[in-house]
Amino acid sequence: MPEVDVECECTGTVWKIVSEVGQVVVEEDDLLILESMKMEVPVCAPCDGVVKMIKVAEGAAVSEGDIVVVMEEE
């Protein structure tokens, strides 16, 4: 199963992590929620699969294009 890097689409801080390593997710599921532009902006699963690695902690500053989660595509 190929690994998929999940990037965040905007700059902000990690507000809440709402998935965990090993979790089975479907496309569009929320993986973590950023605070950006004063809003809660979710980072979603780009495909069905399993969360393999969460590369950021709550409160971390992230930039557009940063890889925040690694998934294993189903």
Partner: peptide, 8 residues
């Protein structure tokens, strides 16, 4: 779409 980059 506010879900993507806050709609910016």
């Amino acid at each position: 779409d506010p879900k993507v980059g806050g709609g910016a």
